[in-house]
């Protein structure tokens, strides 16, 4: 299998195993779509059951949400730039943009965690009501994905530094870029169907 290298393709597609991995990851993303769809369905059903607890209008703050959204949107863009640099075989550009992406991702997490702490201080916890249970689990699952993505990306940055750009490291970078863009896609829906929906006046 490793003998089967097609150098006319971009680095990440060159080996047969890489092509398998990339397709496998796309299918995994299909599963992730279903997973988040289920969480959205749960939120759709429970999202208005406040049980004497706070309502979205009571707790959501447009400023925090916009900061998170812009950070994540931009990180998705920079992540795209990283892959763009990779396709031009520029390790330095790749690493730079990847690290920028990571920093933006950490920024997003920082704001989000602060937002949650703020909610908890206002007495809005996971245990307060069905609305908040579904809110925290939907958002928490996304946040956990981001956290996992950051740890994963750090591993890949280490490998890129250790090994340079090879078909294998390129494939790994490409796959995490898909993952990162996907997290942004999920956020768009969270932004729309959780935050904006909750704040529509």
């Amino acid at each position: 299998m490793s003998a089967n290298v097609n150098t006319s393709l971009p680095l990440e597609y060159q080996t047969e195993q890489s092509r398998l991995n990339i397709l496998g990851f796309w299918i995994f993303l299909g599963a992730e779509i279903v997973l988040f769809a289920t969480l959205f369905a749960v939120y759709g059903v429970l999202g208005e059951r406040y049980a004497n607890g706070p309502t979205p209008n009571d707790i959501f703050k447009l400023k925090d949400v916009m900061i998170e959204t812009l950070l994540l949107l931009t990180s998705s863009f920079t992540c795209g730039l990283a892959v763009f640099e990779m396709r031009r075989h520029r390790l330095k550009g790749l690493l730079t943009w990847l690290i920028v992406t990571l920093l933006l991702g950490i920024g997003f997490l920082f704001v989000e965690i602060n937002e949650f702490i703020h909610y908890v201080h206002e007495g809005a916890t996971m245990q307060t009501s069905a609305f908040l249970s579904s809110f925290f689990v939907l958002l928490g699952t996304h946040g956990a994905h981001v956290t996992f993505g950051i740890i994963w990306a750090v591993m890949i940055i280490i490998q890129l530094i250790q090994r340079g750009l090879t078909p294998v490291t390129a494939r790994k970078t490409f796959i995490i870029s898909l993952y990162w863009h996907f997290l942004d896609v999920v956020w768009i829906f969270i932004f729309t169907f959780v935050y904006l929906k909750g704040m529509v006046g």
Binding site: V34, A37, F40, V45
Partner: peptide, 10 residues
């Protein structure tokens, strides 16, 4: 599938 799950459940 996502639409079936969300719209169907609701």
């Amino acid at each position: 599938v996502a639409i079936v799950i969300v719209a169907g459940s609701v």
